[in-house]
Design a protein around this nucleic acid. Structure first.
Lengths: 156, 156
DNA sequence: TTAAATTATGAATATTATTCTTTTAATAAC
DNA sequence: GTTATTAAAAGAATAATATTCATAATTTAA
């Protein structure tokens, strides 16, 4: 898995705009479109690119409530069954195992606080080993993206 | 901003795969490609669709360290200057204003803990009004996406 | 240095995007 | 209810892009 300068440039262009055409990328990179296409396919095969996705304004589809939930569980270290169960829930966008006192940090998006309440009642309650939860409601999101900083040259 | 059944279906398809072709969407929706294209353009114009982006495996480009930082600031409620300054930092993926004791929840991605340290020393220190920070390191991410649940029919 | 493997090019073809006119459908006014 | 008005969809034509593949160039390693 060694990415060269060109691969990184492709990733940079596609991260910014997943719908950029091969022709446009080829122009930018001063290469033939076919060569670019081959590299993109390899990046997909090697799972460097995991998905092409569309960012949607949550308010436009009325899914504006965001919350972070810290959890303590009775799991032994390294056991991710609780995390796996959480991951299956559609409203759960992120599940992280964290260092420190709590065990999991979970990001959840629902329509409103009533839906969050329902989610906790109907879904979280069924999940085993949860000892305690602490829910933090987001009042306003100032920035939210997954954009990575892509290095100029591979550092590995 | 009223989205009908077809708009929501388009969003569902494009959220799953931003590079789906108009032709394929048209087949799926049993419509003419030109009609689908027009709707997509409108969704872009109305900023329902905010970006087409590519998900990249952070490990592949050696950007594996994820951390959440809780901050207290001396800002008055509603003043987002600190949040705006934080948002400008490339390593900062998310900035949320939260209810409760702390003020901000910030998600940061860097190469390693040394880079995080450098970021805090060089960038965060310059930002005004920060009273305290509490950094939580992510040991493992079990799930991470921005996928929204798109309703079948508009609820508004 | 040479052989093998990888990557890029360029041309041909297939597929898709895009535009525009016509038709249809939906909405509102009377 | 009928008709005017508007919005959306279809369909056809053209432009642009993706994709394939044979060949050439480059890189890698023996």
């Amino acid at each position: 898995m060694n990415l060269d300068k060109i691969d990184l440039s492709i990733l940079r262009l596609m991260q910014e705009n997943a719908r950029i055409s091969n022709v446009d990328m080829a122009k930018e990179l001063e290469m033939a479109p076919s060569a670019v296409l081959e590299r993109v396919k390899k990046l997909e095969q090697r799972k460097v690119i995991t998905q092409y996705t569309t960012k949607i304004d949550p308010a436009a589809i009325d899914m504006s409530l965001l919350a972070f939930i810290s959890m303590k569980t009775s799991n032994t270290v390294g056991c991710t069954t609780t995390a796996d169960e959480l991951s299956k829930i559609k409203e759960v966008q992120e599940v992280h195992i964290i260092a420190g006192e709590d065990c999991y940090l979970v990001k959840v998006r629902t329509r409103d606080s009533a839906s969050l309440m329902a989610l906790m009642r109907d879904e979280f309650s069924k999940i085993s080993n949860i000892l305690s939860v602490r829910t933090t409601i987001v009042l306003e999101t100032v920035k939210e993206d997954q954009q990575l900083i892509i290095p100029e040259i591979n550092t590995k």
